[in-house]
Design a protein around this nucleic acid. Structure first.
Length: 944
RNA sequence: GCUCGGGUGGUGGAACUGGUAGACACGCAGGACUUAAAAUCCUGUUCCCGUUGAGGGAGUGCGGGUUCGAUUCCCGCCCCGAGUACCA
């Protein structure tokens, strides 16, 4: 039997016929959810003598599709951990909220004209209900929503702090812009070491003579949030710019639309100032190695040198960056990025036409084309030459689009013998290749390894690569033609978005100069607009707002990106309802940072990098006392969907079953997995699923319509979304919680399938029965536990479980603790144990995993307070002590039989007993053992 | 290409610092209960040979190595997944 809930609107009957006398999860789960809400059971106190523990989930974007069974995986795990920490005496902060600004709501608003806040509100209500159904221990009094003005007031406030700060490289931290201005006034900028955009040199006198506008423009080059003319990822389809981490394979991450490079005036965040600290900080946090590695690659530190090459017949010098200064004698040509400013200047008249058309051509290629054609080598000679600083040789200067304008200096010294890209280029254009490091065979390929001795390299000859790099830099510096230099791949983050549904940037323009809004005037509330689209002349939607101004001056019209609100929300939870500060000093000082952060790995180079950046910034400016947002982080795996397909015969309304489809010409269509059971289609449900299928016909096999299937990402459009609501309705929240954990290790990705859920469902019933009198057929179960003293075996079953579950939770191995519970309940059932001294601690053990049934049992056991206030049972070794052990006896490492022996025996005695045993005699069959290994309490191995 | 994970029954997965491989659960098979079905309970279930309940052999992707003993450690290879992509 299968009921299609969604379509029929029928909810599953509260009781199966057998359920009357069994555990009724429907009423009991609702009862406790109500109790927790009314008693504010999970409210965390900011004023506690207890040690704090902060468990945080990455908050969701409330999408219209609602939660699917994949979302709660991490929430369940963190909830178990939070509950466990409470039971072990911690004051636990476990909040939840919504990342509620975002593109889907805006897209919907564009289509329907409905304000995105309405959609958002509805979606949040649905999420909340779904979350409540699962029985999470969130402290909802601290809920945050990034789109709420009381929240984004502080997002804007932080933006202003960034705007009013600069990065002092001497003190290695962010400081108030006033300290920079003071320095400019006293000594100009010659002694200022800062992370900034352009090099100017001015004296104190110059500074004082500059007009306001010039001063403002200079300061913008130092501010940590700044506006500049920059190359951005422009996505015409979305009508906005995107940050680097929002672009995947040359298309937008959301929607998959093409992205172009475009020069635009844009607000950006000077995250590059923190590159080194973001890198170093990784060593001190307990995050997955793969995630740290991704951040390291994204930051992309490379150590090398900047070297200036003189250009022949010119006063110009070409500056290049290289990580291999040791190979400088192998530089046989130079390559400039097509965008390099020198291209135009140095190209000789003979080559000008060709170079010009090459540059235009490569500028017109989109990022995507450029990526797709990586193997396609293009380039052109400029006619100009550089002078090798050591050999004095003339080396040709080329233009090639394999050199990126945005990295290093946009120019390279090409060493084809030891760089595969230069090698490919040199081979293609027949340029000389000269070996300077021995160890490879450069006639076949470049030798890129940093191993070997230098050859053909004058003063570097004979040195190992490492020493040669050092020596080369020394010589370069001595000659005054360059210096050692560290480069980062990390770019400043584009911060402005040409969309509506985001935080307004609190900036206004007076005489064309950007000014921050006064803090006391925050928040700058998102205005109403007539349409959520750009204006006719391409201005962002906010330009449509009436009177979008501040003190008579125009306000910025771009809004903040999705990651703005999520870059500091962990702090807001600490004091979520504070309207005079983003959080009080006291709350910040108590909760400090997140102890355990759970979420998906897809945020590695986005959110998780930005939140670290903002945390370091707030730390520098003295607002918080920690430098990292989360001490420990775990990535939960993704739950994939399992899609089902039907096959429509071409030009008909007839559908052919999976096994017979190849006899026809057909098209494959996704079908709602909720009307398919074990790949068999519910034909009647299918007919009512969509109007056009009302009169559908079928070609069946064995009287059934079999669907095809495939594992895909769970999404609305693929009709493979399984909602937790259905599972809860059918099996209960505790069962869903246990099952999601039982599925396998938390970090693992796996397709959702409900095949095994009857296992955890059976476990819950067995657990319930333990506390009840033996059932009489047809009668209700009657609660009954005794005060009798448990047997040794019963104590052992309990304490084994305490030990294992504690260890498992502490290493986040939730799947194995579910097994442990099953083993324990199986054993206690066999022992017919109904003793309070066993069952009461067991209730506490189970409560983090299955809180509803645990609360009910806890109450039945006579407790007045919630089980969440109990204390996690203490493990006592004494119950596990054994006097005997069944030794596995193996022959040459292969186990043959078991022999129970006293643990008091010495090695020699064990040896004797084993040899004397009948089984051993039979196996040896007259042979004498060569050697015997006895590991007391573990194993005996006999070698023949 | 590079980086990081991972390959264990029909399936999801266990196995602590090298020490009884396959826990637990699903599925499957047989049985009990039932007019019947569902549910529940019991038994079996890595594979192969053999069999009364004997016993034997193989086995953790493949090939080697270290060891009394290897899923676990080392070397080489194959396959799968994730991330990244001209970063000089």
């Amino acid at each position: 039997m299968f009921i299609n809930y969604k379509l029929s609107g029928i909810s599953f009957p509260a009781n199966y016929c057998y359920c009357i006398m069994e555990y009724n999860f429907h009423t009991i789960e609702k009862k406790w959810q109500k109790y927790w809400k009314e008693n504010q059971t999970y409210r965390a106190d900011n004023d506690s003598a207890k040690e704090k523990y902060y468990v945080l989930d990455m908050f969701p974007y409330p999408s219209g599709a609602g939660l699917h069974v994949g979302h709660p995986l991490g929430y369940i795990a963190s909830d178990i951990y939070a509950r466990y920490k409470r039971l072990t005496g911690f004051n636990v902060l476990h909040p939840m909220g919504y990342d509620s600004f975002g593109l889907p709501a805006e897209q919907y608003a564009i289509q329907t004209g409905q304000h995105p806040s309405i959609t958002t509100e509805e979606n949040i209500a649905r999420y909340r209900q779904q979350l409540d159904n699962i029985g999470f221990s969130f402290d909802w009094s601290r809920e945050v929503r990034t789109s709420d003005p009381s929240y984004y007031k502080w997002t804007q406030w932080i933006f202003i702090q960034l705007f009013n700060s600069w990065y002092n490289s001497s003190t290695d931290k962010a400081e108030d812009i006033s300290t920079l201005i003071a320095t400019f006034e006293s000594s100009g900028n010659k002694d200022v070491k800062a992370v900034h955009s352009h090099d100017w040199h001015f004296t104190a006198h110059d500074w004082k003579s500059f007009d306001e506008k010039t001063k403002a423009e200079i300061l913008l080059n130092y501010r940590l949030s700044y506006i500049s003319e920059a190359m951005v990822n422009w996505c015409p389809a979305l009508g906005t710019v995107l940050a680097n981490d929002e672009v995947k394979d040359g298309v937008s991450e959301r929607g998959g639309y093409p992205v172009e490079r475009k020069e635009m005036k844009q607000w950006s965040m000077r995250i590059t100032a923190y590159a080194q600290r973001l890198l170093e900080g990784l060593d001190n946090i307990d995050w997955p190695d793969s995630l740290k590695e991704q951040q390291r690659n994204w930051i992309g530190r490379s150590d090398g040198a900047e070297v200036r090459f003189k250009i022949a017949h010119s006063d110009l010098e070409l500056e290049i960056f290289t990580t291999r200064p040791d190979t400088i004698f192998g530089a046989t040509y130079m390559t400039l990025a097509p965008e390099h400013e020198y291209v135009d200047i140095i190209t000789t008249s003979d080559y000008r036409n060709e170079v010009n058309s090459y540059v235009i051509e490569s500028k017109n290629r989109t990022e995507r084309e450029r990526m797709a054609e990586v193997k396609n080598i293009t380039g052109i000679f400029t006619g100009a030459y550089a002078i090798h600083p050591f050999s004095g040789n003339k080396i040709p200067i080329w233009v090639g689009d394999y050199v990126l304008a945005g990295y290093g200096t946009g120019a390279v010294m090409a060493v084809p013998a030891h760089d595969s890209r230069d090698y490919a280029f040199a081979k293609h254009f027949n340029l000389p290749i000269e070996e300077v490091v021995s160890g490879g065979d450069i006639t076949h390929e470049s030798y890129d390894a940093k191993e070997g001795k230098l050859v053909n390299s004058d003063f570097l000859n004979g040195l190992e690569v490492k020493q040669a790099i050092k020596k080369a830099i020394e010589q370069i510096e001595a000659k005054g033609i360059g210096k050692g230099k560290v480069n980062f791949r990390l770019r400043d983050a584009v911060f402005g978005r040409q969309s509506y549904w985001g935080e307004p940037i609190p900036i206004y323009y007076k005489d064309g100069i950007a000014h921050a809004v006064e803090e006391r005037d925050l928040p700058i509330v998102l205005p109403d607009v007539d349409k959520y689209l750009p204006t006719e002349d391409g201005e962002p939607p906010l330009a449509r707002a009436k009177d979008w101004s501040y003190k008579g001056h125009p306000l910025e019209t771009t809004t903040m990106p999705g990651w703005a609100g999520s870059s500091w929300y962990f702090l807001r939870y600490m004091d979520a309802n504070n309207d005079s500060e983003f959080a009080s000093k006291k709350a910040l000082g108590y909760w400090k940072n997140v102890d355990l952060y759970l979420g998906g790995a897809e945020h590695a180079t986005g959110h998780l990098l930005y939140v670290r950046f903002w945390t370091k910034f707030l730390f520098d400016r003295g607002f918080i006392s920690v430098e990292e947002p989360a001490k420990k982080l775990i990535n939960q795996g993704m739950i994939q969907g399992r899609s089902n397909f039907v096959y429509r015969i071409k030009d008909s309304n007839k559908f052919v079953s999976f096994g017979l489809k190849d006899q026809y010409e057909y098209s494959q269509l996704n079908v709602d997995v909720n009307i398919v059971e074990s790949d068999v289609l519910d034909i009647n449900a299918f007919k009512v699923w969509r109007e056009e299928y009302k009169h559908a016909e079928f070609v069946l096999e064995d009287g059934k319509y079999i669907c095809g299937n495939e594992v895909e990402k769970m999404s609305k459009s693929k009709w493979n979304v399984v909602s937790p609501d259905l599972m809860i309705d059918k099996y209960g929240a505790d069962c869903l919680r246990l099952y999601e954990m039982f599925l396998g290790p938390l970090e693992l990705s796996k397709p959702w399938n409900t095949n095994g859920i009857t296992g955890t469902s059976g476990f819950i019933r067995k657990l319930w029965k333990l506390y009840h009198k033996h059932p009489e057929p047809g009668k209700d179960l009657v609660f009954e536990v005794t005060d009798e003293e448990p047997t040794k075996a019963e104590y052992k079953a309990l304490h084994k479980t305490i030990k294992k579950v504690k260890e498992d939770i502490e290493k986040f191995s939730f799947n194995t603790s579910v097994s442990t519970f099953m083993i324990c309940v199986n054993e206690l059932t066999d022992l017919k144990c109904n003793k309070k001294k066993i069952l009461e601690p067991l209730t506490i053990l189970v409560s983090p995993y299955a809180p509803h049934i645990a609360e009910e049992l806890w109450q039945l056991l006579g407790n007045k307070e919630s089980v969440t206030k109990a204390t996690f049972p203490e493990f006592k070794e004494e119950y596990l002590v054994e006097s005997e052990f069944a030794y596995p006896i193996s022959l040459n490492g292969k186990t043959k039989f078991n022999l129970a022996l006293s643990l008091a025996l010495t090695k020699e005695e064990v040896e004797k007993e084993v040899l004397a045993s009948a089984d051993m005699q039979r196996i040896l069959n007259g042979q004498s053992p060569k050697k015997m290994i006895v590991v007391l309490g573990k194993i005996v191995n006999v070698v023949v």
